[in-house]
Amino acid sequence: MSILEVRKLTKQFGGLTALADISFQVKEGEIHGLIGPNGAGKSTLFKNIAGFYTPTKGEIIYQGKKIAGKPPHVIAKMGIVRTFQETTLFQEMTVFENVLVGCFAKSRINLFSSILGLDKQLQKIAREKVLEVLEFIGLSNRKNQLASELPLGSQRALAISIALASEPKLMLMDEPFAGMNMEETKHMMDLTRKVQESGITIVLVEHDMKAVMGLCHFLTVLNFGHLLAEGTPEEIRHNEQVIEAYLGGAK
């Protein structure tokens, strides 16, 4: 069963084609890797799926609905949440408040109940949810610290917590291992697996081959905006074209 399907997606900037005719499917419940040399168009593809870009041509189908061109918050409300390449957090807020934003993100704006304090029930549920998420991710002991004070590994974990709090069905993770050391990477891999086991489908853009090969059930390889290969990690490892693309890029 595929949760996400990209059909003949093309994205052009001016005369430059960043993505050409990309098609692939993501199976529900899997960790799906999206790899390729620098400038292959992975991040652009992510931004198209999450609604930050509008595709020039093609369709993106999520749970049977066309989503291409919808604004980011609408796509997020449908259950697709992305995390960012850089550590993007609400730096000036505490860990708890960061996750709380994720909880409230989808709830309707009700000015009067907010002023009069009639949303106590909602508040209580949200606070419990935050504690639950922090417990799940393992950040409970840091909940009152400012986000900017956290070490890199915890910041990435917090980014995932914010995403989790908004109850996604599909999570787009943009280079979650970038800049991490061995130990942090291992911890992050465990966390990613834990998220997947809780029933959330994950699409992962990553450079760290070891992490990708260890985590992903299925891989899509891009090169210069074109689809190069698809398959299980085992198949990709032995794919001549892929090896050439990577070696060619290294020259």
Binding site: T83, F84, F90, Q91, E92, G102, A126, A163
Partner: peptide, 29 residues
């Protein structure tokens, strides 16, 4: 004061600090 301390106020702060992040979890900035 009540508005600022409510969840609306919290989300307004969030929109200030990182609008794309707020959007990505479903906030209509």
């Amino acid at each position: 004061y009540r508005i600022e301390k409510s969840r609306i106020g919290l989300t307004l702060h969030a929109v200030h600090w990182k609008a794309p992040l707020a959007q990505s979890v479903g906030v209509d900035t």
